[in-house]
Amino acid sequence: MASYRVALTGGAGCGKSAAAQVFAECGAVVVDADQIAHELLEPGHAANAAVRAAFGDDIADNEGRILRAPLRARVFADTRARQTLEAILHPPIRELMKQRSEGARPYAVLVIPLLAETGRPPWVNRVLVIDTKPSVQRRRLQDRGLDPASIERLLAIQASPALRRAFADDILENTGSLQALAEGVRALHARYRARATTP
């Protein structure tokens, strides 16, 4: 039986991580693009060497570990720098996501924050967008320690809510409590499991 894959996406502060955790608790196999990116940036990986070659050794420590704060500052401030980083990281991330979700039972949830920006992979069966009100999104990002200027820069480089929603097969509104989000995820889990196990 072919693998059934659900791509989970949404803007910063919309609740992707919380939703992914509930999917995992329900038994879905969760594969996270951000976690893979962290792995690829570790010393010894080709992506680590490519990032240091592109951005200079001042964004790495003496052991070759990428210093994420300086790198983040560079890509926030410079569109071309961000495109360079994405060109290095996105292809291997997508390939590893496909590999790690192969054979997942009952199905896999692929957490891809930049799905609307980078396009839907042909091997994804469904796209789930977690969405929320802009005011709630900003408040959550502020609670994470981001200042207002950083929040606006972050949101400016992400796809608009309208574009993400246009990509969606399913939309889960996350404007209430964590319990409400969990209930919505569990309902979707039942639907995805049924689709994945139907011959």
Rank of each mutant, 00 (worst) to 15 (best):
P91A: 09
P113H: 01
L89H: 10
L85Y: 11
A108P: 00
Y107P: 00
L110D: 05
A108R: 08
P113A: 01
T84K: 14
M97L: 15
Y107F: 15
P113D: 03
V111N: 03
E95F: 09
T118H: 15
V111R: 07
E102P: 00
T118D: 03
V109N: 03
A116L: 04
T84E: 12
P113L: 02
A108Y: 09
P113K: 04
I88C: 07
L115G: 04
K98P: 00
A108T: 00
G103W: 12
V109G: 02
P106C: 04
L85H: 08
L115E: 13
A116G: 02
A108N: 04
I112G: 04
I88Y: 12
L89S: 07
R105M: 09
A108C: 02
M97P: 00
I88V: 13
Q83R: 15
E86D: 13
L85E: 03
V109R: 06
L115A: 03
Q99I: 13
L89V: 08
A104T: 06
R82P: 03
V109F: 09
A116E: 07
A104Q: 07
I112A: 06
E95K: 14
L110M: 13
R100T: 03
E95C: 10
E95T: 14
I112C: 05
E117G: 01
Q99G: 03
I112Y: 10
V111W: 07
L115D: 12
P113R: 06
A104V: 08
R105E: 14
M97T: 00
R105L: 12
V109T: 03
L115F: 10
A87I: 07
P92A: 08
A116R: 07
Y107N: 01
L96A: 12
